[in-house]
């Protein structure tokens, strides 16, 4: 393999990983606080992508690429984040909160149910065909020697990085972040200390879902918008979260990037047949569960993060 091909694979892997990482953040946040895997996360991502698509197309009209399309894209992203946050909070209220005292399996099954309801409703309302989400900017690739990078790839990487830093600062520095950490450590005690646990949990779902919407829109630019778009990406992001150590925010970011690189280089260097690309993620999942179940960045000592 030449140097150029290596760097091309590296670039492809990093962008793929950036997407996984962004979505993994949502899984990891909810798990960190509730010890519960929100399997509807991928479908919130899909809903966010649809909203983003409709708002963007509506705002853009026939305008040619330029400043206005960038503003429209930014607005679409904000509106979609808001909508997804509300959707995430409502789902929590309706389908998860009543089950908080039940066995741990109950909310998980409920989440799988919500996932099916969301994707089937989308298929019913918007049809099963893919819709194109047009780039709001000129996506002509940039050549650096023989390596090619698109503005979209740069956008994915930078947005993922910025989101992660903001999230990290939010959790470490703000009052709400402190409340989240407290709730994550011990819900009962947090409540006794005067923390509104219900509000904290709602907030967690709101932030996680807003991040999912951003991820959904960024993916949609490349992979189109369709009713089941959240399923496979959601599963892979979940694997990324587990690999990094579920409940750990830097771990999710790292796990995502690692998974993207493994998928790309597994095929390119280790000669795994391209038809088996998807099995890499799940193979890694099994390996991690067998060898280091707490994940690469997870802490072993306590049961709560």
């Amino acid at each position: 393999m030449g140097i150029a091909e290596f760097f091309q694979h590296l670039m492809n892997g990093l962008t793929l990983g950036g997407i996984y990482a962004l979505i993994a953040l949502g899984y990891t946040m909810v798990y960190g606080i509730l010890k519960f895997i929100n399997f509807a996360h991928g479908d919130i991502l899909m809903a966010g992508a649809y909203i983003g698509l409709f708002v963007f197309d509506g705002l853009r009209g026939d305008a040619p690429l330029g400043t206005w399309t960038m503003i429209a894209f930014f607005l679409a992203m904000l509106i979609s984040m808001g909508f997804s946050a509300i959707l995430g909070m409502s789902i929590e209220r309706i389908a998860y909160k009543p089950l908080r005292g039940a066995t741990r399996l109950a909310p998980l099954l409920s989440a799988i149910g919500v996932s099916f309801i969301l994707s089937n409703s989308a298929a019913w309302a918007f049809g099963t065909h893919s819709r194109k989400f047009n780039y709001p900017f000129d996506n002509t690739p940039v050549h650096i020697g023989d390596v090619v990078i698109t503005p979209h790839q740069i956008l994915i990487l930078s947005v993922s990085l910025i989101m992660m830093i903001i999230l990290k600062l939010f959790i470490d520095k703000t009052r709400m972040g402190k409340a989240m950490r407290a709730t994550s450590l011990d819900q009962g005690t947090a409540m006794l200390m005067g923390i509104n646990v219900n509000r904290v949990i709602s907030m967690t779902f709101a932030i996680g879902s807003a991040l999912a919407a951003v991820g959904g829109i960024l993916i949609a630019l490349d992979f189109k918008v369709y009713a089941t778009m959240g399923t496979m990406t959601g599963l892979k992001a979940f694997v990324a979260a587990v690999v990094g150590g579920i409940g750990n925010i830097s771990g999710a970011m790292f796990g995502g990037i690692l998974l993207g690189l493994l998928e790309t280089f597994g095929v390119a260097i280790f000669g795994i047949p391209t038809g088996l690309k998807d099995t890499i993620a799940f193979g890694v999942l099994i390996l991690i569960l067998l060898i280091k179940p707490e994940g690469l960045f997870g802490k072993v000592e306590k049961e709560k993060v």
Binding site: Q8, F223, K224, V267, A268, P273, G275, D278
Partner: peptide, 20 residues
């Protein structure tokens, strides 16, 4: 000759291999 699973969305790895 490179292959993929129906429903895949990312073909950059395969295309990069083919390109070389």
């Amino acid at each position: 000759a490179e292959s993929f699973q129906v429903g895949d969305k990312d073909f950059k790895t395969q295309l990069t291999k083919i390109r070389s």
